[in-house]
Design a binder for these strands. Structure first.
Lengths: 218, 218
DNA sequence: TTGTCTTGTGAATAATTCTTCACAGCGCAG
DNA sequence: CTGCGCTGTGAAGAATTATTCACAAGACAA
């Protein structure tokens, strides 16, 4: 389950607890883990949105954890905590997917700035969580499919070959390919007699499309 | 210049004039030509939306004219007029791009039905004449580009590497590819200091996109 | 001057999308 | 029963789009 929690992964108990305390004082929900292994285990239940991650840890280090996290939880923003003497490691962590880093020792404000920056990035990454939008917009980028939606919007219902003929396309299998796309994206459906019609989602889409067309047509 | 005229191409003067008379009685604007060659010449000035075309004509016949018309004027709807004994030619004409056919001798109503059918198809083909829409929707089908539009909508202006970092993308050339697409489709522009911002068109697009997102998100 | 960062460029490569092909099964009319 | 039209299927091939790579030029600081 994806949560809004911030996960702190650091074997240094003092530092870990300090970070937890600061973040909780600012009303962030915090999960604390002493090892990378414990963190991976905890993520099976609750997936944080931000991970604060120390580089030097026994067992699996922070550097090794980053690719695992990015692979399994691509939405997580990762802030690497690094000692001043290992800044080159921080650069390398950035290259392998960390989103930001904090050099020890850091001030409370630096921590809060980094967290807020990560939250800001998360805000724009929310677009990634809209499979409906992705599919709808991918469907709409094709002209034949837009024409089909328009036809069905006007006519209400229509059968396969009628649509094909109205589109003026000779190769019916081409139309079938596009109808299948629209159907699998739930923009159109068929009744018992196989006539195609718009779904309610399809209707919303074509409405917005026509509104958009009016707005941007010179 | 694209017009709303119907062009009649037939070497048979009686038939040609009959068709012209019928169509003009129904308030259609008609251009009459006796040969394919004359028709091609006339189209340099006024491009009709529908062509009624006889198959058997001296010089270039109807069958040879179809591919030329479809290539140079893809939006034109072509109705092939064919004698009853050459229906197989009509089928072949359909295969090479004619949109409909009329078998001689035809009644006035048959002619009108065919013309209205072609006008109906034209109505749905109007979508083909919206390059702005095509490009905008193609741009929107890509997630990175949508994220860029959202970022600029919120922030107003932003420079290249700031956008790249906010997107959390390491490879700046990838972002450059997408920025170029948005720029060439006039959704974004740059000021003198190279900061990117939305065009007015881009603003309209992102508004509609957010409206659409609200409507179809479950 | 060198090194680094910013902001690109164009081409090769990879991935995705679209079109075409060859076929299939069903229903209906002759 | 055969032939034709309708409505598909899946895979191969073609086209388009996206990503990566190698590089470039300019600006700025040390």
């Amino acid at each position: 389950m994806i949560t809004e929690a911030i996960m702190v992964i650091d074997d240094d108990q003092d530092l870990r607890e300090t970070i937890v305390e600061i973040l909780e004082n600012y009303d962030f929900s915090v999960i604390a883990c002493a090892t990378a292994e414990a963190a991976l285990q905890a993520m099976k239940d609750d997936i944080p949105c931000i991970v604060l991650l120390d580089n030097m840890m026994p067992g699996m280090g922070g550097m090794a954890l980053i690719p695992l996290l990015k692979k399994d939880y691509p939405g997580i923003k990762i802030i690497m905590i690094t000692a001043f003497s290992t800044v080159d490691n921080a650069v390398e962590a950035m290259k392998s997917g960390a989103d930001d880093y904090l050099a020890k020792p850091f001030k409370r404000d630096e921590l809060l700035v980094a967290v807020r920056r990560a939250l800001e990035k998360l805000k724009f990454s929310q677009q990634e969580s809209e499979p409906c939008m992705d599919e709808a917009l991918a469907s709409l980028s094709n002209q034949i499919r837009r024409q089909i939606l328009t036809i069905l919007s006007t006519k209400g219902e229509m059968r396969f070959m009628d649509i094909t003929r109205m589109l003026g396309i000779q190769d019916h299998t081409k139309v079938n390919f596009h109808l299948k796309n629209l159907k699998s994206n739930s923009l159109i459906t068929q009744n018992r007699e196989k006539a195609y019609r718009l779904t309610s989602q399809g209707k919303k889409i074509i409405d917005c499309l026509q509104l958009l067309s009016k707005r941007i047509t010179p």
